[in-house]
């Protein structure tokens, strides 16, 4: 755990403030308040989708807040000879900038990265979330979706930030359009080399050979970067409940995290016209919790995750509009 050191009296102060009847926090928030979240998509021009997210920084501050950069890159994989899997696959990785954890040693930082990577990979690469349009050629070629997250600074609530950034980057991801190409050897033509003999080459409308024998593909030249990743509504959001059983609070700052013995991570996926599905759950910390409390906490978590989901979706749509507008203005300016 990458927590900062805190004196006993500071911990006691934070805990007693939260447990007091008015539940006040260090910066005046209520227990269920989030800090302000800044989000921007399309920050990396060479990525297929990217996003930058910051929790808790005000616009005047030069630094501060929990900042995460997420980017996706699509690579072609060979299914027959390479690592490719039918229907494509997703690989996530999280790396932490040493400046985000100045008090953590290099070896410990590696462990931390590994922990984050495992969690993100487990949740996002789950078959139930797999996007339908990651295959290129049946049995031959498929897309590898590599999602890379970089933690630039951590001032608490890193898990929620990681999943929000991942969701934004995946939402932003465009899969390039492809067209399959059939290879036909010259030798298959009639040996006579008679140019007039075209009739034999003609294919019937019912011919499905193209799909079967397609050996390679080419990228379609089209005005946009491709079509959005399928099922992008499904990407989950994470909500971290910081627990002082039976109390809980959201969006802990770094000091609050150090004073909290137990955390419950809940990842929810929301599909249209379907109840939210719990995609993952982690209990972290040194304390224990009564099992009977957990189901109530999951319900509460679902409520908050729903709010977060609505908010992030609205922002993502706003970003889409902003970027198409920017592209149009830029086009006009160049012309």
């Amino acid at each position: 755990m990458a927590t900062i050191s805190l004196s006993k009296s500071e911990k006691a102060y934070i805990q007693s403030s939260l447990k007091a009847s008015s539940s006040l926090r260090a910066d005046g928030r209520r227990p269920h308040d989030y800090r302000g979240i800044a989000l921007e998509t399309g920050v990396a021009p060479l990525a297929n989708g990217s996003a930058r997210l910051n929790i808790g920084k005000t616009n005047h501050e030069q630094s501060g807040g929990t900042e995460v950069l997420a980017a996706t890159k699509l690579e072609v994989e060979d299914i027959e000879n390479g690592d490719g899997v039918e229907g494509g696959r997703i690989v996530c990785s999280v790396s932490c900038s040493p400046s985000a954890y100045p008090h953590v040693s290099y070896a410990a930082l590696d462990d931390l990265q590994y922990d984050y990577t495992t969690l993100v990979q487990d949740i996002l690469a789950h078959p139930s979330l797999h996007p339908p349009n990651l295959s290129i050629l049946r049995g031959k070629k498929s897309w590898l979706l590599a999602l890379d997250l970089v933690v630039l600074s951590d001032s608490g609530n890193i898990y929620d930030a990681l999943f929000m950034a991942a969701r934004a980057a995946l939402w932003d991801t465009k899969v390039p359009r492809t067209r399959s190409v059939e290879y036909r050897a010259n030798g298959s033509r009639p040996a006579g080399g008679n140019d007039m003999d075209v009739d034999q080459e003609k294919q019937s409308a019912l011919d499905t050979r193209q799909v079967k024998t397609a050996t390679d593909f080419e990228l379609e030249d089209y005005w946009d970067e491709g079509e959005p990743l399928g099922g992008r509504d499904k990407w989950p959001v994470c909500i971290t409940l910081n627990l002082f059983p039976p109390l809980y609070y959201l969006d802990a700052a770094l000091q609050e995290e150090a004073a909290t013995p137990l955390r419950l991570l809940l990842m929810f996926s929301f599909k249209s016209q379907a109840p939210a599905s719990l995609q993952g759950m982690r209990l972290m910390g040194t304390d224990d919790i009564d099992l009977s409390l957990v189901s109530g906490l999951i319900k509460e978590g679902e409520k908050h995750a729903g709010e977060l989901f609505v908010a992030i979706n609205a922002k993502l749509k706003e970003e889409d509009i902003r970027r198409t507008e920017k592209a149009r203005r830029r086009f006009a300016a160049v012309r």
Binding site: G36, L39, E40, R52, L308, K326, V334
Partner: peptide, 16 residues
Amino acid sequence: MITFTSFPVAPDPYLA
């Protein structure tokens, strides 16, 4: 209450 904001925008070189 959860609110999302944008990052402060750098001036667009194409517009400037």
